[in-house]
C-alpha cells in the first residue's frame, strides 16, 4: 500500500515536471491545443451535415449519436494523455532508453507512463466535452444518480480500455522492436467505431468490439441505458452498471501481459 502511494506520488511529480517543461514552449502549446480542438470540431461538423441530410441513423438522432461521440472522444483523449508514454514506447526500445528505465528501482510501467504527459490533448478533451454537454441538453436527459454513475463510469472505463490497448501495443514492441501500426486500427479506429451506435455494424464486428476489445461495453451499452433505449446486444439490464469495471479489468490484464513481455525482453536482449 505504501509502495502504491509512493508510486502515485512520483507519477504526479513527473506530470508536474512535464507540464512545466511544456510551458517553456507556451505558444506551441496553445496553438497545438487549438489545432486539435478545430480538427476534431470539423469532424463533428461532418457528422452534423450527414444527419442534416439523412435525418437519422437506424433510429438514432444526431443528439443521441453526439452523446456517443462526445463520450468516446473524452475517454480517448484522457487515455491519450495518460497513456502516451506507451503509445510512443517503440522509440524507447529502439534507442535503448528502456535499458535505462530498467536500472531504476521502480516499476517499469510507472516509469514509462510518467515519461510523457501531452497536456495539449486538452483541445480534444474540451471539444468532446462540449459535444457531450450539448447532447445532454438537447436530449433533456433526466439526470439521476444511477445515470450520472453510468456516464462517469463509462468515461473512466473507456479511458482504461484505451490505455490498456496502448499498453498491449507497447508490449508487442518487446517482440518486434517496431511499433505495430495495426494496433492503431483498434485504438484510433476504435474511437471512430464507438462514435456510432453498434447496431449499424455487422455482427462479427460488433462482437469483436464487445467481447474481444470491450469498447461497446463502455460506450454504446451505457449510453443506451442512459437514453432508456433497449441495447440490442442482448445483455442483461443491470449489465451497463458493471461496464466501468470491465474497462478497469481490461487495463489490469494488459499490465499483466506487459510484465510477461518485459521478462521476455530481458532474456532475449536487443
Amino acid at each position: 500500500m505504501k509502495d502504491l502511494r509512493d508510486n502515485f506520488r512520483l507519477y504526479l511529480l513527473c506530470i508536474a515536471l512535464s507540464l512545466r517543461g511544456q510551458m517553456q514552449y507556451r505558444a506551441s502549446f496553445f496553438l497545438y491545443s487549438l489545432g486539435q480542438f478545430v480538427a476534431i470540431g470539423i469532424e463533428f461538423i461532418g457528422l452534423w451535415a450527414l444527419f442534416h441530410r439523412f435525418g437519422n441513423l437506424k433510429g438514432w438522432t444526431l443528439a443521441e449519436v453526439a452523446l456517443l461521440y462526445g463520450m468516446a472522444n473524452v475517454a480517448f483523449s484522457i487515455a491519450d494523455t495518460f497513456g502516451r508514454g506507451f503509445d510512443t514506447f517503440s522509440g524507447l526500445v529502439k534507442n535503448g532508453e528502456f535499458d535505462r528505465l530498467l536500472t531504476r528501482p521502480r516499476p517499469t510501467t510507472l516509469m514509462v507512463a510518467a515519461r510523457e504527459f501531452p497536456a495539449m490533448r486538452i483541445g480534444r478533451l474540451l471539444q468532446g466535452a462540449i459535444v457531450l454537454v450539448w447532447a445532454a441538453i438537447a436530449l433533456q436527459v433526466h439526470w439521476t444518480i444511477p445515470k450520472i454513475f453510468l456516464l462517469v463510469g463509462a468515461i473512466i472505463g473507456g479511458a482504461c480500455t484505451f490505455i490498456g490497448l496502448f499498453v498491449l501495443q507497447a508490449t508487442l514492441c518487446f517482440w518486434t522492436i517496431e511499433s505495430l501500426e495495426i494496433v492503431n486500427a483498434v485504438t484510433y479506429g476504435g474511437t471512430l467505431t464507438a462514435q456510432y451506435p453498434m447496431t449499424i455494424y455487422r455482427p462479427w464486428f460488433r462482437y469483436f468490439f464487445t467481447f474481444v476489445i470491450p469498447l461497446a461495453c463502455l460506450n454504446y451499452i451505457p449510453v443506451s441505458a442512459l437514453l432508456d433505449r433497449q441495447a440490442t446486444l442482448g445483455v442483461p439490464e443491470a449489465f451497463p452498471y458493471f461496464a466501468p469495471f470491465i474497462g478497469v479489468l481490461f487495463l489490469l490484464m494488459s499490465l499483466r501481459v506487459w510484465k510477461f513481455g518485459e521478462r521476455k525482453y530481458c532474456s532475449t536482449g536487443s
Binding site: 534507442n95 535503448g96 530498467l102 528501482p105 516499476p107
Partner: peptide, 15 residues
C-alpha cells in the same frame, strides 16, 4: 531487480 538497482549507479556515456 528493484532491490539491486537501488544500490548501483549506471552512466552510459552516449545516453
Amino acid at each position: 531487480r528493484v532491490a539491486h538497482v537501488a544500490r548501483i549507479g549506471v552512466v552510459f556515456g552516449q545516453r
